[in-house]
Computed example of a mutant assay.
Amino acid sequence: MTNTETLYQEAVELLQQLIRTQSFSKEEDQTALILQDFLSRHRVPTHRKLNNLWAYNKHFDPSKPTILLNSHHDTVKPNSGYTRDPFDAAIVDGKLYGLGSNDAGGCLVSLISVFLHFYDRTDLKYNFCLATTAEEEISGRNGLELVIPDLGKLEFAIVGEPTLMQLAIAERGLMVLDCTAHGKAGHAAREEGENAIYKALADIEWFRNYRFANESELFGPIKMSVTIINAGSQHNVVPAACTFTVDVRVTDAYRNEEVLNIIKEQVSCDVVPRSIRLKPSSIDKNHPIVQAGIAMGRETYGSPTTSDQSLLDIPSLKMGPGDSARSHTADEFIYLDEIREGIALYIKMLESIN
């Protein structure tokens, strides 16, 4: 067990090294090497698949439940509003600047520190699995989803995303639906054809007004928004098809498959989901890890943003240092004190259940 001040200093240095190394989604091979080398220097054996790394506590006991500690090391590309070098990793007035510093580098290095804190312990009630994963920013298939089958049985997860160290106990899922209303082409000047736009309008009105029977305690109703529509080729031809796209934000009151089936039963258009992978997720407010956080003055809430939590089929808590409002902004930064506090709070919460 390493003292927390040493863990904090090493975490900041590791984060600076990660910031200085470009790691756009699908291009995280160099940051994976940095993380592998860091853990190796701490004598932690690692497993790697593509740009994903995972490791277990030294005295792993298969008879005990396992906690997953997960965060990602990929970043978005810097936007045009940056006034600083996004890869500089400068520390100014207690802030560490740089691309990925807040989302989710601070969370990542804090969870690595927590893993190292517990790594050598022989008296734990839980095992720990640390997973540092890729492609989170694009919901890619070669990130956490790729390695979940390799991680073994997991009891619950802490997913590191910037939440100001508050407790995101639920997260909306996401489905994008491509819909097609079918009509029959004809001349607009004569009583010919069947206008697909008019058929689509009835379904669009349904998406606008329908309320699902079950509502989430945290999020309220499921939100469906028609965001794109296309039809027609010229002014005098009744269109035979009208396509439109629906953004569906699913709550923890339903599974994605249930919502999709209800929609298909209610509308006349063809409905094709681009994916049903990004599931709503939650953890019971009475779960020991949540209660540990509440006992330390942390607040619970439902997160409107989507993360790798959506790929897990186990209870999961989203929590981490940094502020979601800073994610993907120009001149992204994290306060050093947020990293220090993050490590201490994670450890205190996990100590209380161990």
Rank of each mutant, 00 (worst) to 15 (best):
T2M: 12
T2V: 13
T6N: 14
A11C: 09
V12S: 04
Q16K: 13
Q17N: 03
Q17F: 00
R20P: 01
T21F: 00
D29R: 14
A32K: 05
L33M: 08
L35Q: 06
L35W: 04
Q36W: 05
D37P: 00
D37E: 11
S40H: 14
S40N: 10
S40I: 02
R43D: 10
L53G: 03
W54N: 09
A55K: 01
H59W: 10
F60T: 02
P78G: 08
G81F: 09
Y82N: 13
D85N: 15
A90T: 15
G94N: 03
K95N: 14
G98Q: 01
N102G: 00
N102D: 00
N102E: 00
A104Y: 01
L108C: 06
D120S: 13
L130I: 02
A131K: 05
T133G: 15
E135G: 04
E135W: 03
R141N: 14
V147L: 10
L154R: 10
L164H: 10
Q166T: 06
Q166A: 06
Q166I: 05
L167M: 14
L167H: 06
L167K: 06
A168L: 03
E171L: 13
G173L: 03
G173V: 02
L174F: 13
V176N: 14
V176R: 15
T180R: 11
A181E: 11
H182S: 11
K184G: 02
G186M: 05
A189H: 04
E191G: 15
A196H: 11
A196K: 15
L201R: 13
A202L: 08
D203E: 02
E205D: 05
E205T: 09
R208A: 11
F212T: 02
F212W: 05
E215M: 13
G220H: 08
P221M: 07
K223I: 13
K223V: 11
M224E: 07
I228R: 13
N230Y: 07
V237H: 06
A240T: 01
T243P: 01
T245C: 11
V246I: 08
D247T: 10
T251H: 14
Y254G: 08
Y254E: 08
R255Y: 14
E258K: 14
V259N: 08
I263A: 12
Q266C: 09
C269W: 08
V271A: 09
V272Q: 09
V272N: 08
I276C: 12
S282G: 06
K285R: 14
A292E: 12
G297H: 12
R298L: 12
Y301F: 15
P304A: 05
T305C: 06
T305A: 12
S316L: 08
S324P: 02
A325F: 07
R326F: 04
D331L: 00
D337A: 10
E338C: 06
I339S: 01
G342K: 01
G342T: 01
Y346F: 15
M349W: 05
L350Q: 12
S352K: 15
I353N: 14
